[in-house]
Amino acid sequence: MDKWFKGKRILVTGGCQGIGQGLVTELWKQGANVVAISNQPENLKKLKQQYPCIDVATVDLRNWEQTREIVDSLGAFDGLVNNAGVAIIEPFLEATPGSFDDSISINVKAVMNVSQIVAKKMIENKINGAIVNVSSQASKAALKDHLVYCASKAAVDSITRVMALELGPFGIRVNTVNPTAIMTEMGHKIWAEPSKSETMLSKIPLGRFGEVHEVVNVIMFLLSNGASMISGVQLPVDGGFLAT
């Protein structure tokens, strides 16, 4: 798998923390030319200082036109990972229009926007590319207080299937990964309290939450030619959560 990444250009949104940062650094280790985009300039600066060969760009993915301009200026890519996302936790009866709009703008519209630009350049340059959208187990199971998050991730799964259908004739594969709770820095803070973690853990047959590298490994596989006949799937990385 590592030979496939050597010299390939890969774009990762939300690439300066959590799963995104883990993915960006692993792609770099395997010889890819990586571009990380985010709305967090300080974190991007730290990433660039640590890995000077990784290119970075600052953009607020909620800004449709600015995103199109910046992504278009970055040139053609062999792979894209739509990793940027937001999780707004509110009970159904307290969910607000603003929360819904922000979730859809970042988790869904940005995926469509960035993917349109990257896919068009793949087609123009006759690149048999791969796109991976980071979804969630929340797209397929009801999670308490996750109304807008569940809705947005279900939309990600749906647009992924349509993208796979329409881009397949051009040799472009599109898939999602659907993780359970992952122990990023934020994940450790959210799930540190037993009162919050026990219910979720009780539904995971493997009895633990996921680690960043376990999601990164799956994304790397779906990007690589090892997954050359896989397109339009939603691949859980959930320790069996969705099997119960």
Rank of each mutant, 00 (worst) to 15 (best):
243 A>E: 12
118 V>S: 02
224 S>P: 13
55 D>P: 06
199 T>R: 15
77 F>H: 09
29 K>E: 07
82 N>M: 11
103 S>K: 01
76 A>Y: 12
131 I>A: 02
67 T>E: 07
101 D>Q: 11
152 S>C: 06
30 Q>E: 05
114 V>S: 02
219 I>F: 11
90 E>W: 07
62 R>N: 13
16 C>I: 00
143 L>Q: 12
150 C>P: 06
116 Q>Y: 03
98 G>C: 08
51 Y>T: 14
235 L>K: 04
89 I>L: 08
107 N>D: 03
113 N>W: 04
42 E>P: 09
143 L>E: 09
114 V>H: 05
91 P>N: 05
38 S>G: 07
183 M>N: 02
154 A>M: 09
238 D>E: 09
142 A>L: 11
11 L>Y: 06
115 S>R: 01
153 K>G: 00
15 G>F: 05
129 G>R: 01
209 F>D: 04
216 V>L: 11
23 L>E: 02
39 N>A: 08
70 I>L: 13
189 K>H: 08
14 G>V: 07
124 E>R: 04
152 S>I: 12
194 P>L: 13
98 G>H: 09
72 D>H: 10
140 K>T: 03
14 G>Y: 08
232 G>D: 13
214 E>L: 11
223 L>D: 08
229 M>Q: 14
140 K>D: 02
71 V>E: 03
81 V>S: 01
25 T>N: 06
125 N>A: 10
227 A>G: 09
136 S>T: 09
229 M>Y: 15
78 D>S: 08
81 V>P: 03
168 G>Y: 01
79 G>I: 04
55 D>L: 11
